[in-house]
Design a protein around this nucleic acid. Sequence first.
DNA 1: CTGTTAGCGCTTTCAT
DNA 2: ATGAAAGCGCTAACAG
Lengths: 349, 349
Amino acid sequence: MDMKKRVSIKDVAKAAGVSVATTSYALNHVKSSRISDSTASHVREVARRMGYVPNLSARTMIKRKSQLIGVIIPQTGTTNEMDYRNPFYAEILSGIERVTRENGYHIMVSGTGPNQDYSNIAQMRQLDAVIIIGTYPSKFLDDIRQTGIPVVLVDAYVEDDAFHQVRTNDRQGGYLATEHLLELGHRSIAFVSDAVRFPGVFEQRYLGYRDALKAWGLVPEDALRYECNVSYIDSLRLAERIVREGCKADAFFVAADVMALGLIHGFISSGVHVPEDYSVIGFDDMILASMSMPQISTVRQDITRKGEVAAQVAMDAIKSDEKQYICLPLTVVQRGSTGPKSSRKETGL
Amino acid sequence: MDMKKRVSIKDVAKAAGVSVATTSYALNHVKSSRISDSTASHVREVARRMGYVPNLSARTMIKRKSQLIGVIIPQTGTTNEMDYRNPFYAEILSGIERVTRENGYHIMVSGTGPNQDYSNIAQMRQLDAVIIIGTYPSKFLDDIRQTGIPVVLVDAYVEDDAFHQVRTNDRQGGYLATEHLLELGHRSIAFVSDAVRFPGVFEQRYLGYRDALKAWGLVPEDALRYECNVSYIDSLRLAERIVREGCKADAFFVAADVMALGLIHGFISSGVHVPEDYSVIGFDDMILASMSMPQISTVRQDITRKGEVAAQVAMDAIKSDEKQYICLPLTVVQRGSTGPKSSRKETGL
DNA sequence: CTGTTAGCGCTTTCAT
DNA sequence: ATGAAAGCGCTAACAG
């Protein structure tokens, strides 16, 4: 609570008996303008003793670089919160934070609805780069592009070489998941996802699903396509409905792990066995996929890694204009929720 | 990519034909120095047309206020990441972000090991307040206290009225959980948690557990106390061991939902029924508590709310020195993992 | 009601 | 090898 004014570079200079310029050089280890080693270390020692802490705002003003990276996480329109809670975001944030920190940056995270104009914020704060997670309306992206600040899009499906992009090959993921089911002998495979309205990961996963079906000479049927909110409970209800109303599918490709979990529980509580009666494969390999019984077979993406890569791309983008477009690998991990097609259903369960 | 220099307040002033002071006043709606409404709106119009965006660094320098709140999230020493991924943090962040944003602030989030000195960062960035989640060594807290920046501690158990604090009454929560089990007729109740080494939520929950036992005339037994990492898989292994080696308990109070989930699955896969053979109650009411079968009875804390409150306290702290110490309510929510003591075990399962 | 001016703390030519 | 000085963009006295 002492009103001790913070020590500035001027104070250090005076105490060290040199000019502020020299002090600045010494403190920043500027070697081009070679100060004598003795003065340099003397100045640094004095600064240390005085508890000098540089003022980043001042530096930012001159250098026009804030060492701050903006991170945008989607929000639901309703609560202004919910999406934020998705463990997916915590995980990707984790990766972003570590890599940026190790590079001397900090992250400013905002949950932003598509309507707000983030571009202002980005400019006011002189953000060095912005990492945007998820899909946004083009107006939103246009605004921020105008700022000239490097932007890294994560999991977006937009055609615009003004942006760097990091994502996974969701279409291939959809293919792999479906293929896994096919190889287990299933031929009637349902697809479950959010209402696929606009370009995004779900659409891609659906396309991959169709690709696989066609590659195996099968025809995608609309009757085998289910839509449902990305929510545990809604998926559970869906499963109950499916059991109640009957379904010719013998396997389900569910485009998100949370939904897969709900579906599985819905089946089980309706007396249907997984994977004996229905095989279910999810997508993402969220932590919860291995915390259920049975554990969920899924298409694994390394989410933390995605964050790390996005951060690295941002770091690069600050130094170079060259746009990067990175696609991360995806692999099927087989666990307990998928199994070979059994004859059980045929024989009249 | 046009090298159009950003328009500054000086540019606006010139274009509007007034001084920078007037411009500043107009733009900031300063009413004390009453400018004519006509000039004011004229200036604002010009600024808008020119696409003027204020520079926060400049403002920060003068006002010594950055409109930035630091948020510190714990990290494991090993990966420098893991704790960050805990859904708990995503949820609390969600709350913090929303209310800070609504108050015109932004958050800078860092995952910080106890050894790093965050106080420097806080000073360099002129953070207006810092929200610290979890328990940290006192050296860490001392450093940051020195800065004079308002600090809000969340879920910390430290005696220091230099800090604002937000937490739940974990001891009472421990009491409630145990009481719930007692009321169901259980008398031999085990306590499972992390190794309780130092002051923190787990210790408090344990104390609450003892309180309840004593209140019911029972004696806490060391044999009924289990320690285990806060991890799904480790808890699952623990359950298997418990079943293998036998255990006289008929109910378990587990100090975290993730562990409760692991324990339950471990029991089930060992052929032991929950809640018929063992009742299990968790703590936190994480989303996963209602996404399991059976759903987990637990002690609910509203985590998002905790974040919101912490943020509000931070907002207040910026304006007033008066320290706040807030304790959020806790309630037992009974779900499927706890039930009345059955005679099943007695009769020799 | 509006303009002049002195910085905030720091970096960076340009001299010396 | 070091110093003087000119700002970066903005706010806040202080004058008028």
